[in-house]
Design a protein around this nucleic acid. Structure first.
Length: 360
DNA sequence: ACTCCACAGGAAGGATTGGGCA
DNA sequence: TGCCCAATCCTTCCTGTGGAGT
């Protein structure tokens, strides 16, 4: 049933962006305007912010030769962003040390810029708390494209000199309507599935259920096709669609968990192994009893304050939810079927070859 | 109503890491 | 080789919040 699974990848950018034509045109006009080029693209998750920017940057490159660089700004400092941009440029260094002073990172970046360059700062919600926007905007030949969720709040946190031009170039993407997203899914089905195996009604049902979030809709369609295959259905049936939502969400969470560093993995494993729910106090007690997990690791256990910080990331990644305030707060795993990457010693199991090293 | 306690999260600063340079 | 310096990560300290006990 699945002809080309790449069509359902998050990174896949279709030849034409359905229902984003006017936004694409606006973006292209902005990039080729005589003066201000900088842009803020805002909107909820999964509405095509990154795809739109990728498409526009590629098109400008094809037509005018303007270079473009994509940086995931999530969690990066000013210096980290400058380093990341510089190392991605063809004329830039292969790597820049983490401890390189900002001044030098700035100089290396300036030297690496060879003509007009579009710098896209994806996952840029925290950018106003850094100087990255100002630094990049001060550089000749650089066009800044920041991608964030809440544009109004983002602009209000930015320095007024930078906020004004970005406000002028603010492009706000709303969620797709059910019909629009169903159109997009229909296009993906034609490209990625064999024959007409899914009905328009099913596509609209998916679009409605995921509330216009394209990423989730596309993953759900893919999961429905997989389920239909597994169940030896000739076409996608309604029960395949019904069961696909959870598989799609599960898959997104598994990918999120895998992308996180070791401390986060340990914390997730603790909440997961506790039956999926525990208080802050229990969390810290269990963490402190688990020093074995860090044996042979280059990283050492962290303090309670740092643990709280790590936990916020688990929440951001839709892996853990919190309920209640201060001492009543409960940490809960959202999907207990998302298995921890790290096995805790207490969960170590024995097979015929003896105990398995949980961290190997 | 008041005090105590436990926890979350902000701010400041220390320890570590690693490149630059004499 | 050893010192200096800057970035980063983490800890310590502190304040605010809210429930429990008196």
């Amino acid at each position: 049933m699945i002809a080309d699974p790449r069509v359902f990848d998050d990174e896949f950018v279709p030849a034409d962006l359905l229902h984003r034509e006017s936004e694409l045109e606006r973006l292209l006009r902005r990039f080729t305007a005589p003066d201000d080029h900088d842009v803020l693209i805002s909107g909820p998750s999964g509405v095509g912010k990154t795809a739109l920017t990728t498409k526009a940057a590629a098109q400008v490159h094809d037509e005018t030769g303007v270079a473009h660089v994509f940086v995931n700004a999530l969690g990066k400092t000013t210096a980290g962003i400058l380093r990341s941009v510089a190392t991605q440029l063809p004329a830039g260094p292969n790597s820049i040390a983490r401890t390189t002073p900002t001044d030098k990172a700035r100089r290396l970046l300036r030297e690496a810029i060879d003509g007009e360059t579009i710098v896209v700062l994806d996952e840029g919600d925290d950018l106003p708390e850094t100087d990255a926007i100002r630094e990049l905007r001060s550089m000749r030949d650089v066009t800044v494209v920041a991608i964030a969720h809440d544009g109004t709040s983002w602009l209000s946190r930015l320095d007024v000199d930078d906020a004004h031009p970005l406000d002028n170039g603010h492009l706000e993407l709303g969620r797709y309507s059910t019909v629009e997203l169903a159109d997009i899914l229909e296009r993906r089905a034609i490209q990625g599935l064999h024959g007409s195996v899914v009905s328009r009604g099913q596509l609209e049902a998916i679009a409605d259920e995921v509330a216009g979030v394209a990423r989730e809709g596309i993953q759900t369609l893919f999961a429905a096709a997989e389920l239909a295959d597994e169940r030896a259905h000739y076409t996608i049936e309604d029960d395949d669609v019904d069961d696909a939502y959870e598989r799609a969400r599960h898959r997104i969470r598994v990918a999120n968990l895998k992308s996180l560093p070791f401390h986060h993995q340990v914390l997730y494993a603790i909440v997961h192994s506790s039956g999926g729910e525990l208080t802050g106090g229990e969390l810290h007690d269990q963490y402190e009893a688990l020093t074995d997990v860090y044996r042979g690791r280059p990283v050492a256990p962290i303090g309670a304050r740092a643990r709280r910080e790590k936990f916020q990331k688990l929440v951001d990644y839709d892996l853990v939810a919190t309920a209640g305030e201060t001492k009543d707060r409960i940490y809960r795993v959202i999907d207990v079927d998302v298995e921890p990457v790290v096995e805790l010693p207490s969960l170590r199991f024995t097979n015929s070859k003896g105990p398995r090293n949980p961290l190997s």
